[in-house]
Every structure is written in structure tokens, then in C-alpha cells.
Design a protein around this nucleic acid. Structure first.
Lengths: 236, 236
DNA sequence: TCTTGTCCAGTGGTTGGACCAGTATGCCAC
DNA sequence: GTGGCATACTGGTCCAACCACTGGACAAGA
């Protein structure tokens, strides 16, 4: 399917345009954290839109953590112009699975998850990981890449870590993580190696060997990352 | 300064309550990604609020990536109930600085940051960290707790890691991290010990000793966490 | 029978204006 | 000074109307 130049027209809502104008404004004026914006009524007049639209835009900026809205006082800047784009993760990364930065973050999170899993190792968690690996072994033996089963294993491991906050972070990055895993496992010979690494990690966890589990996971993530990055460079 | 139970009352805006109700609703109903919510008008009536407030709440949920709003069609769920509450960090944690979960996450992120900082160690970054430590030394010598300087050091370290994604994660957790640091440094004798740990970490980074930097940071974070948790248990 | 056009009901998007509620400020009586 | 009060801002909420878009029902035409 070729790009036929007939992709659907996308009209962006007014409040979104307003939000963008406001971002541009605080950037152009070089407003600093703590500075106060104009009142909603004045903004509405200057932008030529209704106050409702301004309020919707401000709500959006508020959710993004850019401004703080104080009843009776005004709207105050929380972060400087330099710290825009809070969705850096999905923005920058989505198209560049081979960026080392992602692998470094995976290393941070998953190594700690492995360590904590080894510390806690509930029976149900261990069985979930074992099951995921068995499924992956079957898939790999059948010539598949085992992407789905790999994902299942990593999620089970994070679950086994028993840390809701850590779990939340991985879910937030799940898109990126899944992409990187896929990029790794579609490399020739990689699924077999990955499976062995997983077995080693699980073994350490089962023995309650925190340091060992952490180190095995670190080696695993690093190796995967290096292979993907190298392959990407080669392709360019 | 003791907790006097007279902190300012915080009235949450209506649209925020509405947003929370909606989150609860899609959780209770176990709505799946792709499902459609009721119309804005119906939601307004059922919740007993104006359509304006509903729209503000929906805008917030949209920005958070929870729903997709399609003109002429309706509001559709993007993520399942499992991936709710992106602000879990500030929600759960704000009042429980002594929860081990936070320290475990700090360990994950900061250990990796130390490792990467040792790998890259740009001159400017090293100087920023040194400067922060010197300031902390002066503060501690003067009998202060050095909370501000400690924060400066940790931020400089994350900066030195040279990983924007990692940096973003720490910023997202900055509230929690700052609280935990403060809880640690206000314990008797802790600032002195912390300062020594920082010196050791920085030394390893300066030598480009990745494993050493990582291990020193791990010991530092673990020790801080254990002390805070122990002190909290004692207080109960 | 299949297509085409029209209409219509329901959806979100936007507006203006009104009023409620919280904050800061200055003035005034005490 | 202190407290009370009026006031002039600020954001928060509501309402009623209308615009813009979508999808489906349905009739007119090929």
C-alpha cells in the first residue's frame, strides 16, 4: 500500500490550538516558574475565543503539570519553557527502538525487579514465570520468535517484584518496552539466546539469589540492547 | 516542627471530583479499551453536574491518555482499568514516606544513573556534583540538614547520566523523591553519613568505575531507606 | 436490486452571559 | 495594632443556545 496522499483530514479542536498558543507564549516570553499568566478573561479576549475554551486549554496544561491554577489568585507557571513535552517517552522514542537510552532505562527497572523478585519469590509468581518460559520454549522450538511469551515473562517478573510503583512505571513504558523486545527477538538466533538468559534469571530468583538475579538480568538486557543497536547502525 | 494537624484545607474542584468518579466508574464496570462511554449530556445528568464540568473532566482524562474523544461519535476508552491512575506516585505515596516501595524504585533509578554517570562523566557534570557536595559539606558543618544541597547533588547526578528518559522519570517522581530525602536527612546523624556516601559515589564516578558507583549508590539508598522505615515503625 | 441523495437524531464543540466562591487590598472604626 | 468590612479582582460553575460532525434510516432514482 503506497502513501496515496489521501489520509483523512484532521481538524484539531479549538482548545487544543489554544493550549499550543499558550505554550508558544510562555516560551516566547521566557516566563519562569512562579510567574503568573493573564486572567482567563483577558486571555479569552486576546485570543478571540470564549472563556470556556481558554479554561479547557488551561485544564489540559494543568494536567500536564505545566501550570498551577489557584482559585481567586490566578494561573501560575510550574515549569520553565525548557521542560516542555512531558510525553517525551512516547514522542521521541516510538520510532527509534534502537536508541540506547531506552535500553538503559529498561536495565534500571528490570534489574531491580529481578532483585526484588528474588527477595520475595511467592510461589504463584514463580509458577507464572515458569509457565511463561515453558510456553516460550515451545514457541521458539516451533520456529517462532516468542515475542508474546517473552512479554508474558517480563510482566510476570515485574509482578513478582511486588512493588506497585515499579509496576506502574513499567506499564507506563510498556509501549516502548514491547517495541524494544520485539526488535530484539526478531534478530536471527536471538530467541534461543534470550530463552537461555531467562532460564538463568529464573533459576537465580528461585534460589533467592538477589545479586545473581540482578546480574543475570543486567547481562540479558545489555546484550539485547547492544545487538539491536548494532544491527540498527549496520542498517544505516 | 511537629505535625500540628493544622495544614490548610484543600477543596478539590468539581471537575476533578468528576474525573475521579469517571475513573472509578470505568474501573467498577470493567470497561475495556474501545468501549464507549455515555454521552456528555447523560453523564452530566447522572452525576448531577453541568455539562461544562463533565467536559472539563473528560478533557483531563483525554490529556492523560485514558480516553479518546471523537466529534459526533462519543467518548471511547483507550486503556483498560488496569492502567489507571497515572499519578499513583503522588497519590499513594504522599503521606507514606516510609513505604519501602519508594526506596526500591529510587534504588532502581539512581543506581543506574550512577552507573551511567560513571560511564560518561562529562567535565561540567562532575563539577556540578562536586559543587553540590561542597555546599552540602558547608551546610552540614553549620548544623543544617543539607536537604537542598542533597537534592542538588542527586539532580546533578541524574543529569550526568545523560539519559533524557531517565531524567524524565526522576522528574515525574521528584515530589516523592524529595520527600524521602528530607525524611532521611532529618534523622539525627544522617547528614554526616549521607555526605560521606555521596563522596564515595562521586569518587567512583570520577574514576569511571561503573560497578563501584552503582554499588556505592545502592548501599547509600538502601541504608537511607532502612533508617527511615525503621524510624517510622518505631514511631508507631 | 443497487445506488444515491436527503434528512434526521444524537454526538461533541463553542459561545455568551450570569452567578458563585475564594483572595488580596485598602479603608475605617475601635 | 486589631478586627471588621467593602470592594475589586481572580477562578469555578451553571445554563441555554447554537454550530459541526457522524451514522443510520429512508425514499428517489438507475
Amino acid at each position: 500500500m503506497a502513501s496515496d496522499g489521501l489520509r483523512p483530514v484532521t481538524r484539531s479542536p479549538l482548545y487544543e490550538q489554544v493550549a499550543e498558543r499558550l505554550r508558544d507564549f510562555i516560551d516566547a516570553q521566557q516566563l519562569q516558574p512562579g510567574d503568573r499568566l493573564m486572567s482567563e478573561r483577558e486571555l479569552a479576549e486576546r485570543l478571540g475565543v470564549s472563556r470556556t475554551s481558554v479554561r479547557q486549554a488551561l485544564t489540559a496544561l494543568r494536567v500536564q503539570g505545566l501550570v498551577e491554577i489557584k482559585h481567586g489568585e490566578g494561573v501560575f507557571l510550574l515549569r520553565g519553557p525548557s521542560e516542555l513535552v512531558p510525553n517525551l517517552a512516547s514522542e521521541i522514542v516510538s520510532s527509534e527502538v534502537d536508541h540506547p537510552m531506552i535500553w538503559e532505562v529498561r536495565e534500571a527497572i528490570e534489574v531491580q525487579a529481578a532483585r526484588l523478585a528474588a527477595r520475595r519469590r511467592k510461589r504463584a509468581d514463580l509458577e507464572a514465570m515458569r509457565a511463561a518460559l515453558d510456553m516460550m520454549e515451545t514457541a521458539v522450538a516451533g520456529g517462532e520468535d516468542g515475542v508474546v511469551e517473552d512479554r508474558r515473562f517480563h510482566r510476570a517478573l515485574v509482578e513478582a517484584a511486588g512493588n506497585p510503583l515499579l509496576r506502574q512505571l513499567t506499564e507506563q513504558l510498556s509501549d516502548v518496552i514491547d517495541r524494544t523486545s520485539e526488535a530484539s527477538l526478531t534478530l536471527a538466533g536471538r530467541p534461543q539466546v534470550s530463552l537461555l538468559s531467562h532460564r538463568a534469571i529464573l533459576a537465580a530468583i528461585e534460589h533467592g539469589d538477589e545479586a545473581g538475579a540482578a546480574e543475570e538480568m543486567r547481562k540479558h538486557v545489555m546484550a539485547s540492547g547492544e545487538r539491536v543497536v548494532a544491527h540498527a547502525r549496520q542498517g544505516r
